[in-house]
């Protein structure tokens, strides 16, 4: 490739941006969690603790050191994939959240695949016939779901499919902690369904809008006036052009999935990092909060980065660009 240098540099630029973003996020995460009101030592020792015990524990936990030193040590630990020791339970955070991480990634991962397939699939179907039945139904459902808070979606799903007339799936995801989540698929169905319901409308709406705009672009009008069939126009003329912006939306859907995850895990009593985050916040287990927040940030930033890079590569304008141009 003549322009391999440019492409490599473009990817490097995207990676560098991602890393810079993560660095900024790390600062925000660290200092915002520090600013949470409440006292970890009191949370750990309970109401019985004496001031000396509290002070001792703070020293033990390293909470007496200067804040910048704490940040540097924490960041260094993060870089080595060692998020530290939970302030609350005094066990390594990594082992504490490992199984929950797997659980959450399982539902978010499965949901993500569905979101992408449904987002593009229904978006395309709806745009094949603007104002047609598919379009009207899809946009109706879309707007209905978009108007609901996440936990309401969860409750509706439970009412309809778990405790109401149809008792198809269990309403609570009581994962047997001794086995991995994916070996208990019936417990994953509803949480995944909820995540899909929560995240798909955002993707679908954006793809519909992008595609509909693209279907009125000069390129499509020209193709139409050149006798290209509508199917081919959609797949070959319109879709490739919306790939880059739509991937941004898909990456943003990861945010919705991770945000929805917290609500869904509560509604379904699903043991994942969302509920771990909530509980860590309530116990002021800052180290665990930081670890989970950083993990979520990394997933989001990586999603954006991958979307940027694939998006870049999907555009002939970027793909064929040469140095100095």
């Amino acid at each position: 490739m003549k322009n391999a240098g440019y492409v490599a540099r473009q990817i490097a630029r995207r990676l560098a941006t991602g890393i810079a973003m993560l660095f900024v996020v790390s600062i925000i995460v660290f200092f915002c969690t520090q600013a949470l009101p409440g006292d970890i030592a009191r949370q750990v020792l309970g109401q019985n603790a004496t001031p000396e015990q509290l002070a001792n524990l703070r020293v033990q936990l390293g909470l007496d050191r200067p804040i910048l030193v704490q940040y540097a040590q924490w960041l260094w630990g993060m870089l080595q994939l060692d998020p530290g020791v939970s302030l609350a339970s005094r066990t390594p955070v990594a082992s504490l959240i490992a199984s929950r991480l797997t659980n959450s990634l399982t539902i978010v991962g499965i949901a993500f695949v569905f979101v992408v397939v449904l987002g593009y699939g229904l978006g395309i179907l709806a745009c094949r016939k603007p104002g047609g039945i598919v379009d009207t139904v899809v946009s109706g459902i879309d707007h209905f779901i978009l108007s609901l808070p996440e936990f309401v979606v969860g409750i509706i799903v439970i009412t309809l499919l778990a405790v109401g007339a149809l008792r198809l799936f269990p309403p609570a995801s009581i994962i047997d902690s001794r086995y991995p989540a994916w070996q208990q698929p019936e417990l994953l169905v509803l949480p995944v369904l909820c995540l899909v319901l929560v995240a798909t409308p955002h993707v679908l709406e954006s793809i519909r809008t992008l595609l509909r705009e693209e279907l009125e672009s000069p390129a499509v009008v020209w193709a139409r006036l050149s006798g290209i069939g509508e199917g081919r126009i959609l797949m070959r003329y319109a879709l490739p052009n919306i790939l880059a912006p739509s991937l941004q939306v898909v990456a943003a859907s990861v945010n919705f999935l991770l945000g929805g995850m917290v609500a869904v895990e509560t509604v379904f009593a699903f043991p994942g990092i969302g509920s771990a985050l909530v509980s860590a916040v309530s116990t002021r287990d800052i180290v665990t909060v930081q670890a989970i927040a950083m993990f979520i940030a990394v997933v989001m930033v990586v999603a954006l980065m991958v979307a940027d890079i694939i998006g870049d590569m999907s555009m002939a304008r970027v793909r064929t660009k040469e140095d100095g141009q």
Partner: peptide, 19 residues
């Protein structure tokens, strides 16, 4: 013993025979 942060979820789980 299973943890439920949401009492609604606990009630649903009971009605569905999960607990």
């Amino acid at each position: 013993i299973t943890s439920f942060t949401d009492t609604n979820a606990e009630a649903s789980a009971l009605i569905a025979g999960q607990i």
